[in-house]
């Protein structure tokens, strides 16, 4: 995991966000073991107390679970997993809409441009629109 942090958002929230992105894209699979608090602090170069806080937050949101003294794992709960994807999508669209509204592009034109761009990007990555 390699993350650069911005300086104005709480670090623990940025860590949770990274986990959500990795869960949504499948980099972290359901049930996958995650690093310990110490390992995470080390990997991300963050304060161990912050890593602890991020894990606490994710436990509360049901993103990760811990059984007994075993390492924590990514949730297998499909509702939670779907919600994570939905949350990230909505957030991305919201911020996109905010910038689009500022320049007042008609909806049809917008959709056309989006299709083109998406195809261009997928082409670069060697994939197709799913």
């Amino acid at each position: 995991m390699n993350v650069s942090f911005n300086k104005r958002d709480p670090v623990y929230i940025q860590v949770v966000r990274q986990f959500k992105e990795r869960i949504a894209t499948g980099t972290f699979e359901p049930g996958q073991e995650i690093p310990s608090r110490r390992e995470l602090a080390n990997q991300l170069k963050i304060n161990p107390n912050t890593a602890q806080r991020a894990y606490k937050e994710m436990e509360e949101e049901g993103l990760i679970y811990t059984e007994g003294n075993n390492p924590s794992r990514i949730t297998k709960d499909e509702h939670v997993l779907a919600a994570v994807r939905g949350e990230l999508l909505e957030e991305a669209v919201d911020s996109f809409m905010t910038s689009i509204r500022r320049i007042q592009i008609p909806f049809d034109e917008l959709v056309e441009v989006m299709k083109e761009k998406y195809q261009e990007q997928s082409g670069k990555e060697g994939g197709e629109i799913k």
Binding site: F5, K7, V11, K45, I46, N47
Partner: peptide, 26 residues
């Protein structure tokens, strides 16, 4: 500072350069 070498200890550091370590300190 993010490793077990400092874990659970209390650390006081003085500095006038904060940029590199902003997200490491409590």
């Amino acid at each position: 500072f993010t490793s077990h070498l400092v874990e659970d200890r209390g650390v006081i550091i003085t500095t006038h350069e904060i940029n590199d370590i902003e997200h490491l300190i409590d």
